[in-house]
Structure formats: C-alpha cells, structure tokens
Simulated assay, not measured.
Amino acid sequence: MTALTEAPPEAAGVPAPAAKSNGGGLLTYLIIRFLLIIPTILILVTMVFFLMRITGDPITAALGGRLPADQLQERIHQAGYDRPILIQYVEYLGQIFTGNFGRTISDNRAVTEMLATFGTATLELAVNAIVVALVIGIPLGMIAAHRRDKGADAGLRVFAILSYATPVFFAGLLLKLIFAVWLEWTPVAGRATTATELALTQLSAPTGIYWLDALRSGDMAAFWDVESHAILPALALGLLTAGVFLRLVRTNLIGTLGKDYIEAGRSRGVSEFRLVTKHAYKPALIPIITVMGLQIALLLGGAVLTETTFEWKGLGFQLAQYLSARDFVAVQGIVVLLAVIVALTNFIVDVVAALIDPRVRY
C-alpha cells in the first residue's frame, strides 16, 4: 500500500509563501503611529487657536479697559490681530513650526522661555506622581486579586473608587491639613525653601528639576528639602491615578488567574502567592502600560489644580495665573505644549506595548 504524500510547493515550481516579518510589521506600525501624531497635534492646535479667538483678539481681552483706545488699537495693529483670522492662523502655524510661540501680553515674556522655565517643574511633579501611583496601585491591585471577594478586596475597591472620584484639590487640602498643619511633618507649599531655590538656580547649567540639580551638586540637605516639599503634591496627584491602576491590576490578574496554565500550577501544588507574583503578574501589566499614556493627560489636567493648591510653580500654576489675567497668548502656548506632550507620550506607550506584546502590531 502506497502512502500518498503532498509534494512541497517548490517541487511543483511554485515559490513558497514568504514568512511574515515581525520586524517589518513592527516598523510599519511605528511609522503609522508616529505619522498620526501630526494630524492629532494639528487638530488640537487649530481648536485651541479658534477657541482663544472667540472672545476677540488677545490684546483687547488682556488689556481692554486698562489702556486708552488709541494705544490699544496701536498694539492690536502691531501684533497683527486686526488682519483676517485665517491669515493669523496660517502665520501662527508657521511660527509654531519654527519654535516661536510669541510673547505673553501680561508680562511681555517670550512664551518659549516661560515654557522652558516652568515646564521642568510640572515634569518633576508628574514623574513623582506616576511613581506614587505605581507604588500604591500595583501592589494593592495584586493584594485585591489575591484576596478576591474578601474583606481586603472590598476595602481596596472602595479605596480605588474614592481615590479616583475625590477632587484633586480637595485631596490636596486634606493632606495639607493633616500632614503639614496638624502633624507638621511636611512643608505646607512650594517646591523648596527660599535658600535651597536660590542655591539650585545659581548652579552652572541647572536643569530646573530640583532633585536632580541637588544630586548633581552633591547637596543632600537640599535634596531632602526638595523631596519633603514634593511628598504631598505627588501624593495628591498620584492617588488620582493609583485607583485606576489598582482596578486594572485586580481585573487583569483575576482574568489571568483563571487561565489553564495557572490551574496547572495549582494542581502541582504551587502556592497562590507565587502564582500571583511570578506567573500571572507580567501578563496583567500590559493593559497598564497602554492605559498609562491616557493617564498622563489626566495627570497634566490634575496638575493645574495640584500646583495651585500647593503653590508649585509649574505650568499648571502659571496657566491659572494667565487665565486670570486673560493672557490668551500664554494660555495658547501652554495648552499646545501639553497637547504635544500627551501625543508624544501616547506614541512612546504604543512603542513599549508593541515591543512587549507582538499582537498590538497587527
């Protein structure tokens, strides 16, 4: 009896199909994701520009009623705000591409200089808040999954809801009252004491990130001074995201713990703690990496209220000041920068997610 065998495609003169290249798939995915940044930023810039013009020209909005009519019209003409709105829009796009965001109206300061000065403070606060969110959210999420449907799980779920639902300014005021006023463990406000700020700003080529400048100078007293001021703002802002991470870790860990390979581990006598921390933990982190990019936008939005509450002089604090002064040129520059940061952060998160999980690329 002769066995029937199928000849390979090459034997019949037909070329075999090429294997799918993971590298090509990843490169195509990254190029597409990067190119999507351009229309995203363009749409945001356009929306911000026209929304800022709804109330009229920025000069009148900021200085109307404080300058004589002739001086006001002269400044409007010099700034070009009496030209057609579409011409102003095209010119503004050209200025952005060259890195020129104009000058603030209230204090006649280059917007790019203002963004560089205060942007580092917001970056420092956002990084500290992310660290707090990860340190609190991930371990508590693992505990909630491990103690599913028990008292600890119920308590942690309530904590997650409260941390996300509590307004960040209220959480900040409550933390200040408890730890700064009643217990006197931390400073009330600011990024550092006046002496430390003067010392750090006088360093050669300061980065503007105070804890980094303190480490560069080797001044550990200044470092601890900076960190003591950062504890409460980072905690107030980090708790906003910690609740999201807690619920995500819990949900994904519970789903992973029901997989066949986890059940096989249980049947071999592997402890539940080891299953959670070693085998189910890493797969459950992939959604967190994806959501982390979305949380950056939430953190930057919360930074406005956090910085105002703690007098943390970053972009959020300055945004509140410029809004009060109706300085829409400065507001426009800050909002555009925050939009660029969010878009680039989401791209980086997409890259990391694609490297960890190849299914994201297709």
Rank of each mutant, 00 (worst) to 15 (best):
L235I: 11
L198N: 11
I334N: 15
A62Q: 00
L51A: 02
G208Y: 14
G293D: 12
E227S: 07
Q332H: 02
V349G: 10
T166H: 15
T306S: 12
A303Y: 13
R250E: 13
G24M: 05
T98N: 03
F179N: 04
T194F: 10
L305K: 15
T60H: 11
W211M: 00
I37P: 12
A79N: 08
V249K: 08
N346E: 14
G258R: 08
W312K: 01
T112G: 15
A3S: 01
Y164G: 04
L215R: 06
G208A: 08
H229D: 01
A236S: 10
I296T: 09
A339Q: 15
A180R: 06
L67S: 09
N346P: 10
M47C: 13
I296Y: 07
L125E: 05
V188D: 13
P358E: 11
T166N: 14
S267A: 07
V90G: 06
L315F: 00
A230K: 02
I209P: 07
A280R: 04
D225Y: 06
P58Q: 10
M142W: 13
V340M: 06
L72M: 15
Q321H: 07
A129S: 01
A110I: 02
T2H: 11
I288F: 07
Y281C: 07
A19P: 04
E307A: 10
G151E: 09
N22V: 07
Y362I: 08
Y281I: 01
V351D: 10
Q71T: 14
G218D: 06
L315E: 00
A236Q: 08
G243Y: 01
R359A: 11
L30H: 10
I288C: 04
Q73I: 00
L140P: 15
L298Y: 06
F159Q: 01
G151K: 00
T256N: 09
G314V: 02
V329E: 01
A280G: 06
T306Y: 12
S106N: 06
A339P: 09
A62I: 00
R83F: 12
N252R: 14
G23L: 02
K313A: 09
G99W: 04
A230P: 08
A339M: 13
L232N: 02
M220S: 04
